[in-house]
Design a protein around this nucleic acid. Sequence first.
DNA 1: CACAACTCCTTGAACGTCCAACTGTTTCCA
DNA 2: TGGAAACAGTTGGACGTTCAAGGAGTTGTG
Lengths: 177, 177
Amino acid sequence: MPLSTDPILEARRNWDRHGWPAADAMAAATSITRAHQLLLAEIDRTLRPFDLNFSRFEALALLHSSRSGALPMGKIGERLQVHAASVTNTIDRLERDGLVARTAHPTDGRTRLAAITNRGREVVDDAARALGAVDFGVAGLDALGHRAVESALAPVRAAAGDIPDDAPAPPSGSTAG
Amino acid sequence: MPLSTDPILEARRNWDRHGWPAADAMAAATSITRAHQLLLAEIDRTLRPFDLNFSRFEALALLHSSRSGALPMGKIGERLQVHAASVTNTIDRLERDGLVARTAHPTDGRTRLAAITNRGREVVDDAARALGAVDFGVAGLDALGHRAVESALAPVRAAAGDIPDDAPAPPSGSTAG
DNA sequence: CACAACTCCTTGAACGTCCAACTGTTTCCA
DNA sequence: TGGAAACAGTTGGACGTTCAAGGAGTTGTG
């Protein structure tokens, strides 16, 4: 159900009217928030048939991509940028569903490894293709649009330390900042 | 604490390696998710001294900008794109803090209005300036960057009906799609 | 080799979001 | 005009996230 007016345009008008600062930053931030909202809804909808949500999918994909298929809980949280308690919760659920198994670290008794199971690999593979089929929730963008999004957001992530200084630049598209 | 490698670059490599489709869309979606995560953390941190979170701030700002300072619960949910139950919860908290008051609709007995109080206006004004001072969480972007973000994300929102077809185009920057 | 400091993970509580079900009102129309 | 259907908002439950605190294991140091 389309809105009758662009809420961000509206917000910008009001922002200016009140004399509040950084209207452009507000519009950018709100754009990100809105896009994220829409995105996540579509992604979760797509993932539902696989009994996954985005968090669990990300964890599974991360394990699937790791050399040995197993990673310490802490590493997962670091890579996914979520709290350790969330990792515990996520892996709990994946383990309950038989997609992951907790194993002991060979040398460090404190560390627990989350290891993806064969079923986990199958599920994440199917889920990834399903996400691809719906363009990962960013329908409405062509190839150039994808690059534009990635490039435009890179400075935001970089400022927060999400991208190391020595990383290769994002692929083409217009950057700023 | 900066990461040692760009997680999105890493994800793209793995995505390709598995032969999964729509790697560009994945990178764009992941960029949005990451940026949102970082953004929201900074915004909430800034809003904490005012006893607000982003949801409550948005609701307050919306009421502050409305003609009469009062809006039906349903309208708030529609404009903020959140579930009715979330609006109830948000307004509950704002009311408890004396920033908003529920009033009756003059003609429709089903409808309840949320009306901003004078204290609510003061608080949202202070909070808005505080957010402006931290660039609304999108530090690392200059003016061009803000426009680039807004433009790049517009097609995503438009595809989901978040922008009406007849809305004016976003201000400059590169678009695609 | 003892013990303090640190690290890794888990647990419990608080909070926010959604969905489904429910109450109360209004609208529609036969 | 009476009752079904639609609508507005709230409530309770499930889920996911964070923070604070705690248990278990490891490391560093005198």
